[in-house]
């Protein structure tokens, strides 16, 4: 029987490893990264995955080996070692070293994400979250938020590509979360507070997702970040500013 059980555990380990090997092939893995945060975050995810994989294979390998070897149920003598300081030292110090190394390597990344506050001044737009809507406020012709010439866009925030973009996140009711999977960027939006996020992104259209439970409609609180090349972005802003002063119909589609 011990062989059966050893094989069952080996099958489990193989299943786990295989799932991580095959998932990217099926697309059940990181979406393509499109912001300046993506390469380092993805690298970190992979590095940690390799560390996990190494520990996993080692531990499960030993487990399977022991089940295979020690499972005879006989009455033979046991190893009477109840401690082994050298061994204990190894399995404490080696993982500790790896963990400390991991903790330290990601500090730079965190610093780049959180401590490199871009210049002051108005953000490109204010992102207002409410149950279950994204509503973006752009400063309008006067470049100032909170004035009557601000313009609103439902659902979609439009930003320039290739430069650092800052958005100010506001909530009208409960906690929401600004999550753009392609940017590897997530930030909770807390009512009563104005929290800024910044990123540098490539041109394209990206899903904006609410990542914090905000009520029954949480699942459909969908938005979009449209990143335009800088010239197109300028033209877009001009057009939107002008539209404020006209009666023309717009659908944005």
């Amino acid at each position: 029987m011990r062989r059966v059980w050893a094989l069952l555990f080996a099958a489990f380990a193989a299943l786990v490893v295989a799932s991580f090997v095959h998932a990217p092939e099926r697309g059940w893995w990181l979406p393509e990264g499109k912001s300046s945060f993506a390469p380092s975050t993805d690298a970190l995810i992979r590095t940690i995955l390799w560390v996990m994989g190494a520990f996993f294979v080692l531990t499960l390998g030993l487990l399977v080996l022991f089940i295979w070897r020690q499972g005879d149920g006989s009455n033979a003598a046991r190893s009477d070692k109840s401690s082994d300081h050298r061994l204990e030292l190894i399995w404490t110090v080696v993982p500790a070293g790896v963990l400390v190394w991991l903790a330290l390597t990601q500090m730079d990344e965190w610093k780049a994400m959180k401590f490199s506050t871009p210049g002051a001044g108005e953000p490109i737009a204010e992102v207002w979250a409410s149950q279950f809507d994204w509503r973006m406020r752009h400063p309008g012709a006067d470049g100032r938020l909170g004035s009557a010439d601000d313009w609103e866009s439902p659902y979609e925030v439009v930003v320039p590509a290739g430069e650092e973009v800052r958005l100010r996140l506001r909530s009208r009711d409960v906690i929401h979360s600004f999550f753009v999977p392609a940017f590897r960027l997530k930030q909770d939006i807390v009512p009563g507070r104005a929290i800024s996020v910044w990123f540098t992104a490539e041109a394209g259209e990206y899903d904006l997702v609410c990542a914090e439970l905000c009520g029954w409609g949480h699942y459909k609180m969908a938005g979009r970040v449209r990143v335009l090349p800088p010239e197109e972005y300028q033209a877009f802003v001009q057009r939107q500013n002008a539209l404020q002063l006209s009666g023309a119909e717009v659908s944005g589609r």
Binding site: S130, Y155, S251
Partner: peptide, 15 residues
Amino acid sequence: LENGVYGTAMHSFAR
């Protein structure tokens, strides 16, 4: 449908 009715549960369906 595309803009929603802001301030109500009728959110934008622009997606």
